[in-house]
């Protein structure tokens, strides 16, 4: 028997789980052919956060425009696609439904296979678009809704070894930003202030039990709120830069130390960071320095692949497609979807 030559796989990815409407064409799960994102951030700014109903309304306005643009930029016809992959969850349910129903209609119109993809699997597979993933692999997933350590023993296999017990890291950033009167989205601003700061407030580090890979950020958040409150009562002004640096250093130190300990215990070949908060410069720098020293390859995707996009959904979807995973036309949005392995 001769060597079986795989034909190229072209996947259309669609993502609408929060406030970005996105579509992308990815080749073989590794090569971005097009990657279109319509951000709504300007619409939500005045409300100080994402308003779900407004997000859903924008998704309906944008969805066909974004898909058309992704196909046009990729110079590809629906008939040339192998499958349509769409974020099934977690996310805002009303927002998820737009991408899902568009994906279902598109797959039905062209007789294409449909695959529902977990949003976090997408964030992890954003790395496959930059360099080959090698297993066992440890992923630190940090975003507005997630703070998780995920161990992957092989492609499509996930084991959750640690997660936040209260606030996600990104949530803590948003809340601290509010305390500091920094407009939404506050994360990038705190990161910048921390970098420019010449001093810092000493905030606690929450380690939990010695062998735990779980996280907790609500105590740190409260410490920041109390610090501001006490200063207010004394009629003193706080130095926002010092607060930003103190807060960020606490978050970064705990995330980095737990990731390092897990990487050692599971003897991983690669460590990756994924999710919106992995765009944070303080976190990227600390992880890079730590794993350089440790001699374990560490990767974090470029900024535009850290935030929500559809290329990452297509990348994870390609692995599912190869594993024979398919969804039917009853696919529905699942806001609390669990990350399950497709290779067991």
């Amino acid at each position: 028997m001769g060597e079986f030559i795989m034909e190229n796989i072209y996947i259309l990815g669609i993502e609408s789980s929060c406030d970005e409407t996105a579509a992308s064409v990815v080749k073989n799960g590794t090569e971005i052919v097009s990657n279109v994102v319509a951000s709504q951030i300007e619409s939500h700014k005045r409300f100080g956060g994402v308003v779900p109903e407004i997000a859903s309304r924008h998704h309906v306005e944008q969805i066909t425009v974004v898909i058309e643009e992704a196909l046009k930029q990729a110079n590809i016809q629906p008939a040339d696609l192998n499958a349509v992959c769409v974020t099934e969850g977690p996310g805002l349910v009303g927002a998820l439904l737009i991408g899902i129903n568009a994906a279902k209609a598109f797959s039905f119109a062209h007789g294409l296979p449909l695959i529902g993809v977990h949003h976090i699997a997408g964030h992890i597979y954003a790395n496959a678009l930059v360099q080959p993933m090698e297993f066992p692999l440890l992923a630190l997933v940090v975003s507005g809704g997630h703070t998780e350590l995920v161990l992957m023993k092989e492609d499509g296999n996930f084991e959750l070894i640690g997660e936040t017990r209260d606030d996600a890291a990104g949530e803590a950033y948003d809340k601290v930003a509010r305390v500091l009167n920094i407009p939404y989205p506050g994360g990038p601003q705190i990161d910048r202030l921390a970098h420019e700061s010449d001093g810092e407030v000493d905030f606690p580090r929450v380690w939990l039990e010695p062998d735990s890979y779980d996280f907790s950020f609500s105590g740190l958040k409260s410490a920041v709120i109390n610090y501001k409150h006490n200063a207010d009562q004394r009629g003193e002004a706080i130095n926002p830069m010092h607060v930003a640096k103190g807060f960020q250093d606490s978050v970064v130190e705990v995330l980095t130390a737990k990731t390092l300990r897990a990487a050692r215990q599971y003897n991983v070949k690669q460590v990756i960071a994924a999710g919106g908060v992995s765009a944070n410069k303080g976190l990227r720098d600390a992880l890079t320095a730590t794993f350089n020293k440790e001699g374990i390859p560490f990767y974090v995707p470029p900024l535009k692949l850290c935030t929500d996009n559809a290329a990452m959904i297509a990348a994870a979807g390609t692995s599912m497609f190869k594993a024979g995973k398919r969804s039917d036309l009853a696919l529905n949005g699942r806001p609390g979807l669990e990350l399950l392995s497709w290779n067991k």
Binding site: I67, A105, A109
Partner: peptide
């Protein structure tokens, strides 16, 4: 509307 719009556009 999403289903109708996507079908109409792509067909």
């Amino acid at each position: 509307v999403t289903v109708a719009k996507t079908l109409a556009w792509t067909l």
